[in-house]
Amino acid sequence: MATAKTRQKILQTFLDLLSEHPYEDVSLPMIAAAAKVKLSDMRSAFASKLQLVAAFTEKIDTAVLDGVDEDMGDQPPRDRLFDVLMTRIDVLAAHKEAVRALHVAARHDPALALDFNRLEVRSQKWMLIAAGIDVSGVKATIVAQGLAVAFARVVGVWLEEDDEGMPRTMARLDKELDKGGSFMKRLNGLERAAKGVRSLLKRISDRPARRRPRADEDDGEPDLSDKAPAGA
């Protein structure tokens, strides 16, 4: 079983190699050799490159969650989310070239992009939690998916920006959150409509059924058949 120290060493080696090589060129044996660990330790620590990417995203999540500004608690949700996502960019800055390699790899490999997306959606759920935005169930996944796509666009701008003040990155994040706000309003509207439909269906299903009387049952109406005049 690989120790925590060995896992950390392997992960850092992976990130260092990504800073110099394309993602597809970085193999597990290459990582093991560069980290000076046995292949058995490599296998015990990380069975695939995707597991290494997952460990990287978890590392970033942890750093962001540890750095949440408690003083932002009284700010609007959008401002809190902006602050959290910019904190995420700040944390990613130490690994910018590795992030670039992952970004390029995802653009050229749709299957890999889906794998990365799954990891990013999970991370963005935690970013929403860090911002104090309460979403749960299916809605949480929908919102996190939208946020994952939006943040990927922001990262694309950040990767091409050299200004340390990141004006273009912040402007793009503003734009994406504005679009996300419109999306949330539509989603909330759909959610309210769906709740209304469910409530209506429940009322209908709870309503006592009207039983149609059988032909041989007395329905309370007088039987006039034997009183009709002959030949009528």
Rank of each mutant, 00 (worst) to 15 (best):
P229G: 07
R211Q: 11
D109W: 00
F183G: 15
P29Y: 03
R107E: 15
L201T: 10
D79L: 09
A194R: 13
I60L: 11
K5D: 08
N188P: 03
M166Y: 12
A32C: 04
K59R: 13
R100E: 15
L92H: 14
T13H: 14
V84S: 10
E176S: 07
M30V: 07
V143I: 10
L15K: 13
Y23D: 04
S205P: 02
D90H: 09
R186F: 11
H21S: 12
N117E: 01
K185Y: 06
D69W: 06
L224N: 10
M30F: 06
S40Y: 03
D74A: 12
R100F: 15
M1I: 08
L173D: 02
R43P: 01
E164A: 12
P222T: 01
A98I: 11
G137T: 08
S225A: 02
A2K: 08
V91S: 07
D41M: 03
M166K: 11
M170V: 07
L224H: 10
H21E: 14
R78P: 01
A47E: 13
I204G: 08
R80D: 11
V68R: 12
M1L: 09
Q75I: 15
P77R: 06
M184C: 06
Q145N: 08
E160R: 15
D66W: 11
M30Y: 02
A2D: 09
S136P: 02
D71Y: 09
H103Q: 05
A55Q: 06
V26C: 13
K227I: 14
I142V: 15
D66M: 10
A33P: 01
P76T: 05
G137W: 02
D83T: 12
L85F: 08
P22R: 11
L81R: 02
R43M: 00
R153M: 01
R214H: 00
S225D: 07
R43C: 05
L173N: 02
P213G: 05
R172H: 08
I129T: 12
A98Y: 07
K175Y: 12
L18D: 09
L17S: 08
Q145R: 02
R80E: 11
I129S: 09
L18W: 13
D90M: 07
E58G: 05
A232R: 03
L92C: 15
K185R: 11
K179H: 10
G132N: 10
G180P: 01
W158T: 04
M170S: 13
E20V: 13
V149M: 02
S199C: 04
L190Q: 14
F82Y: 15
S19H: 06
L119D: 02
S19T: 03
V64D: 07
A105C: 03
L173I: 05
D90L: 07
A209T: 07
L18Q: 11
A32G: 03
E176V: 05
R122L: 00
R212V: 09
I31K: 08
A94G: 13
R172G: 04
Q145E: 05
D219I: 03
V157Q: 07
A98N: 11
R88I: 15
H21T: 10
H103D: 09
R192C: 04
A106F: 06
Q124C: 03
L85D: 13
V121P: 05
I89E: 09
G146D: 03
A193L: 14
E191N: 11
K125Q: 01
Y23T: 03
R118K: 03
W126E: 07
A93V: 12
V104W: 14
R198P: 04
I129K: 10
L15Q: 07
R172Y: 05
S19N: 14
